[in-house]
Design a protein around this nucleic acid. Sequence first.
DNA 1: TCCAAGTCGTTTGGATCCGAACAGTAACGC
DNA 2: GCGTTACTGTTCGGATCCAAACGACTTGGA
Lengths: 165, 165
Amino acid sequence: MPDRHTLAETEQATRERVQHLPLDFAASHALLSLYRAANAVRGHLTNNVLRPHDLTWTGFLVLWTLWIWDSMETRDIAESVGISKGTLTGVAKTLASRELIERIPSTADRRLVNLKLSPAGVELMEEIYPEFNKTESRIVGDLDARELDTMTSALRTLVETSEQS
Amino acid sequence: MPDRHTLAETEQATRERVQHLPLDFAASHALLSLYRAANAVRGHLTNNVLRPHDLTWTGFLVLWTLWIWDSMETRDIAESVGISKGTLTGVAKTLASRELIERIPSTADRRLVNLKLSPAGVELMEEIYPEFNKTESRIVGDLDARELDTMTSALRTLVETSEQS
DNA sequence: TCCAAGTCGTTTGGATCCGAACAGTAACGC
DNA sequence: GCGTTACTGTTCGGATCCAAACGACTTGGA
């Protein structure tokens, strides 16, 4: 056995290390798994689907959000994608320079800027997303419907719990 | 209703947008929830527990890994934490400059470098981790034991599935 | 009307991260 | 021996990210 440790081995070693402390192991291992899973999935999708199209993970999420919701104010996009306003400014600049999105200043409130997919952006999403989704489907393919459902709703609970503060 | 969209609203809008395409919605929403949950949890723990101690998320994970496993070769640490070798070099340099870890070159194979927690590092972990874990426990507190268990094992399955490739 | 407070997107500075290129070291076949 | 191959940790360039500061703009009460 090499020094590479599986999640299960890490769990066991953790118990031995901090046995004397009153800790919530279930919580710790759940969130460690959460972080590792998100990283692994993100990396896999980025390398196998997004990189060939020269798209960033964040960039793709922005495009996808705009695709679903048509047009949005930048503050809402940032909140929806889960990045800061400042980060979105840079990402939007990159996407706009590739003419995948359009910047539409609001006339009612001149502080606001709306973003919108360009025709080329729509075309790109209609090409990429089926492929992206096929990979997503393969990733969760080892879970049965009940597991997937429970996991999804549990994750949503975590989002709500940890975002309010 | 403002333009802030919940995960449930996003799910509904997605269905309407791509109704005509043969897509795996369950997979898509599961992974969207996964990514959002990981981000929310990481942000919450970083801001509320780690930042007061001037620790990075990645830095904490490295310290935690060394705490659990005593001493490790850098390649295994990077793989365990889920970062590249190059990133670990920088993080280790930062932690070493704060004298939280020690670099121990291997005598048997002079390419290898082992990292090890310093006494100060051990002290820091014993101070921080109970606090960290208490927050973790609170985050998953809205889930019952069955949900938490199913979620954790499902996440482990995702790690295994998406890391092999 | 006017100004103080709030909100918007942007900019800035610094930290983090990855992937590729790199030099040093080990292992193995011939 | 000795060169080829593989593998280590490091370095480098570029992209991403956040938090804080900022200017532009709107709002609402005095």
